[in-house]
Structures are given as structure tokens and as C-alpha cells.
Design a protein around this nucleic acid. Structure first.
Lengths: 144, 144
DNA sequence: TCAAATATTTTGAACTTCAAACAATGGTAT
DNA sequence: ATACCATTGTTTGAAGTTCAAAATATTTGA
């Protein structure tokens, strides 16, 4: 049990930082001139049901004010457009431009390759215990 | 196999951000007036064999210039001291003050409690497959 | 209608980081 | 020794991220 704790702690502390760096690197290599946080915003826009500022900000976990500045630069870079919700004109709905979809696709591909590499290189077992445990941990943090 | 990939991808994408937020929150609650990045610097100092600027920066993955500014504020806050290596006066060796050790202890305690909660709440098995797999993934990213 | 609630933007500040320029010390080759 | 290059750190200027608080616009409900 002690060992399992140590390993998980290590994952939490060190590996996550490493992964962020890897992701940033991956973006640069693919000629995507966006930061990880910007990609994160685009990702949230594509995932959220109704892409209003509040919904997107909540999905990411930042304030709406912070999101506004992020969207401002993404708008300048032509990655997103704004329009007002006709049924509630207080709301601003964000839409992804084609170039944004391309960037997301590239990012997804990178992720896929990274995960493929992990599985191939490590010969990870298709083990029920592993999968179930990871699902538990994942679900746990989602609801924290 | 497909499911395992999805779960790992999810861990990488979403949970990571959540954990960072949780850690920041944990610090505030314990009355530690340091940011996560500052704690990260202190952690690196305590872990690295020879706490020179270059070694610490490398451990964290930032430039030495960035580390200098971080150390400047930690020095002002009395968390660290600087001294020159007598055998190579180009080197600056950083030492932790008692208050820094306290802060690290609090942070470790928080981590421990978080991990305890995970194990208790999720009834994670002390399973060899899980532990070995996590160790593999952890080691894999360390060397990426 | 008018006040309260909701949605977003603006502004000012703090923090993190980098790259490039600069300074000092150490090592090496002639 | 001297000259030069490499190593180690610091400073500086700029960019990016984030927040809180104030301001603006719209909707809703009494």
C-alpha cells in the first residue's frame, strides 16, 4: 500500500508538470502558434453544449473576465467569432473558425500519438484492475 | 484497450488541471503565503543534490533567468538564502530557511491527506498490476 | 416600471516565464 | 602568462495568464 501511495504522489507532483511541457512542445512542433491555455479554451468551446462565456469559463475553471481576455486574443488571431444569442442578448456565443478546428485536430493527434507511444513502449496490460482504478481516480477528481 | 486509452487521455487532459487548482486551494487553506510555483521551487531545492541555480532550474524545467527572479522574491520573503560555492565562485548555492521547511512539510501533509482520501474513498486495491503500471507510466514521462 | 439578477467587458495589478544582453569566473591552448 | 571560449548567474524588457472589482447591457419578476 505504501508503494502505491508513493507512486500516485509522484504522478501528481512531477509527471503532470512534465506533461504540460511536453504538450507545449508538441504544439510548437506542429506549427500551431497557440499556447496550451489557448488550446484549452478552444477545447472547452468545442465540448460545451452552449458556448456562452459563462459556460466556457466554468468548463475551464477560470473567471469570465479572464476568459474575455483570452477570447479577445483568439478573436484577433481569427480563431473564433462572437455573436449574440438572439433569445438572450446578454449572452455572447463563441464559434470556432476552421483554423481552430484544424488546431484542435492536430492537438488531438498529438495526444493520440503520445498515448499510443505509452502503450506500445510500456506494454501496458489490458487489465481490468488498472482500467477500473484509473477510472475511479479520474472520476474522483472530476467531482472533487 | 480502447477504454484504457480513453481513461488515460482523460487523466492527462482534464484531471491534471483540476489537481493544480486543488493544490493551490490547499496552500491557501493552510495559511501558506506562497504560490504553487514558489512551493515547486522550494521542493526542487530540497530534492536536488547540489542546489545551484542551474541544477534547480533544470529540475523544475525553467530557465535560470526565470529562477533568479523566483529566488529573488523567496529571498525577500526570507524563505531562502544564497551563498557562493567556495570551490567555484561562479556558482550560487541556495539554502532553505526553517520557514521554508515548514511550508514544504505542510504541503506534503496536504498531499498525504489527498492521497489518503483517494485510497479510502475509492477502496483502491493494493494491486500489483495497478502499481506496476503506474510506476511504468511515471518512469516513462520522467525520461521523455 | 423598476429593482434585482444575469452576462459580459474593462481595468489595474500580480505572477510566471522567456530571450537576449551583460558580468564574473574557470579552463585550456599556445 | 595571455588570450579565448565555456560555464554560471543576474538583469532587463516583453508577453501571457489570471484575478478582483468596477462598469455596461440585458432580462426577469414583483
Amino acid at each position: 500500500m505504501e508503494e502505491a501511495r508513493e507512486v500516485i504522489n509522484e504522478l501528481l507532483v512531477e509527471i503532470f508538470h512534465r506533461i504540460l511541457a511536453i504538450e507545449n512542445e508538441g504544439l510548437r512542433q506542429q506549427g500551431v502558434s497557440l499556447s496550451m491555455s489557448e488550446v484549452h479554451v478552444l477545447e472547452a468551446i468545442s465540448l460545451v453544449e452552449e458556448p456562452s462565456m459563462t459556460n466556457i469559463a466554468q468548463k475551464i475553471g477560470i473567471t469570465v473576465g479572464s476568459l474575455t481576455t483570452a477570447i479577445n486574443t483568439l478573436y484577433q488571431k481569427k480563431y473564433v467569432t462572437r455573436k449574440y444569442d438572439p433569445s438572450d442578448r446578454r449572452k455572447v456565443l463563441i464559434a470556432l473558425e476552421p483554423i481552430a478546428l484544424e488546431a484542435l485536430q492536430k492537438h488531438d493527434d498529438f495526444h493520440q500519438r503520445m498515448i499510443d507511444a505509452i502503450f506500445e513502449d510500456l506494454h501496458l496490460a489490458e487489465d481490468e484492475v488498472l482500467i477500473q482504478s484509473l477510472k475511479k481516480v479520474s472520476g474522483y477528481f472530476k467531482k472533487w
